[in-house]
Design a protein around this nucleic acid. Structure first.
Length: 422
DNA sequence: TAGGCCATCTGGTCCT
DNA sequence: AGGACCAGATGGCCTA
């Protein structure tokens, strides 16, 4: 069986390969490459979420297992030591070159080696060729296995930053990708709503995005449409999230890490807001900070030192108890209230914070997709069973609508509400 | 037991 | 020649 018999790896022997065939290097690689199914996946620095900030050459494929990676699987084995530990080597019919070097004859002309197309490699028997191919196949399998491990590792990282319901639910691969797509879309809508609030086009109401519903959409394979997104905006559950002191203090779908059992904590020095892996602290005297699993960043804003941080909740001033749905809330004329949480000062605090974080991220380009998937047709779509069929570009075409045309954003531009508060 | 999910192997293709 | 990537095949595990 290959993988256990030394002869399976013997085709690098001098008697088989020409000295300059380059196969010796392959053998060395094979020794440094994991060959066991139970090999430990590559160790990586996970602190950067797998995102390399090192500039890459355009149109150059990455080499996954370049020298910068450390292979913890197996110590490099010295060929001589390897051979010495396997007695059967010398008992094979394969001629073994004498280990004693003959003194060179200075009068003998040096052998000239052909290069390139003129080079003629030594003939190999079918058995030898088979062994070479088998050895390559084993190495390719190892690379493929590790490549999939890295892909799964990246998926796990992605799962870590997505909220799940319940918390211990593990999304499948396809669910993770679908939910991530929809989640990003929902977050972008949230940020867009901040813009609208700042411009006075939308009221600072207590509508919250229902991430659980968003996840259910993703698991079912459904893409978030404008109607779906509208469906995910709920009137907040007053009994759960609306407190008697007028604070709306919960981000649905996220843990509530603060001692008061909420995502929001206000002290005499400022406020702390935690949403998933990100905590935003706004200090009354400056020193504002964003902390996430990938690091921390400080930011300041001239207008962040106002007295707005302690003002009352919107719900202190306007009741929503009689509103049964979104339209009712919107139609109550409350949108004219601009003295709530999302006043200019607080909005700009958030805006600066998110922009600071966003500057370190590369935004995807539409051209990136088209260059990679230009060969796909647009025949795909969702079947009646709710599953999505083929056609990456069809899906992406809709994504383009999401991020370019934003027709659905326009639909909600004047109506989307966020439930955060400062 | 059927179906879903997953890991792995495999051969082919593209690229350097 | 070799690495990265992809998709099909296969078998194991789990659950309804």
């Amino acid at each position: 069986m290959f993988g256990t018999n030394f002869e399976d790896y013997c085709d690098f022997n001098d008697s088989i390969c020409s000295n300059d065939s380059g196969f010796e290097r392959s053998y060395a690689d094979s020794l440094a490459t994991p060959t066991s199914v139970h090999s430990t996946p590559l160790k990586h620095d996970t602190s950067d979420l797998g995102i390399s900030l090192t500039p890459k050459k355009e149109n150059v494929r990455r080499k996954l297992f370049s020298d910068e990676y450390e292979f913890p699987f197996q110590e490099p084995v010295d060929i001589k030591t390897f051979e010495d530990n396997i007695p059967s080597v010398n008992s094979t019919s394969t001629p073994v070159k004498s280990k004693e070097k003959k003194p060179k004859d200075p009068t003998k002309p040096k052998r000239k080696y052909a290069n390139g197309k003129n080079r003629v490699t030594r003939c190999k028997s079918p058995t030898q060729i088979m062994k070479i191919k088998r050895n390559r196949r084993i190495k390719a399998n190892d690379r493929e296995r590790n490549r999939m491990h890295m892909l799964n590792e990246a998926l796990d990282r992605l799962r870590c930053v997505l909220p799940t319901f319940p918390e211990d639910t593990k999304l499948t691969k396809i669910e993770t990708l679908r939910f991530a797509h929809n989640y990003i879309f929902a977050l972008s809508q949230t940020l867009e709503s901040l813009d609208n609030i700042n411009s006075g086009n939308a009221p600072p109401e207590g509508i919250t995005l229902n991430y659980e519903k968003l996840q259910n959409y993703s698991i079912a394979g459904e893409k978030v449409t404008k109607d779906a997104f509208r469906d995910m905006f709920l009137v907040p559950n007053k009994s759960e999230d609306y407190t008697g002191d007028g604070s709306y203090r919960s981000f649905q779908g996220f843990s509530k890490p603060f001692p008061n059992g909420s995502n929001f904590m206000q002290t005499s020095e400022g406020v702390l807001i935690n949403v998933g892996n990100v905590t935003v602290s706004v200090n009354n005297n400056g020193g504002n900070c964003i902390t996430s699993t990938t690091g921390s960043g400080f930011f300041t804003h001239p207008s962040s030192f106002g007295d707005d941080l302690t003002q009352n909740n919107y719900y202190d001033q306007k009741t929503v108890a009689t509103c049964n749905n979104y339209d009712e809330m919107y139609d109550t004329g409350l949108q004219n209230n601009v003295e709530g949480y999302f006043n200019q000062t607080n909005y700009e605090i958030f805006k600066n914070a998110f922009e600071t974080a966003a500057k370190s991220r590369r935004h995807p380009k539409m051209d990136d997709y088209h260059s990679n998937y230009s060969n796909y047709n647009s025949t795909a779509g969702y079947g009646q069973n709710g599953k999505y069929y083929c056609g990456v570009d069809a899906a992406y075409a809709q994504t383009n609508i999401y991020y370019n045309q934003r027709y659905h954003r326009d639909f909600y531009n004047n109506r989307s509400i966020i439930n955060t508060q400062i």
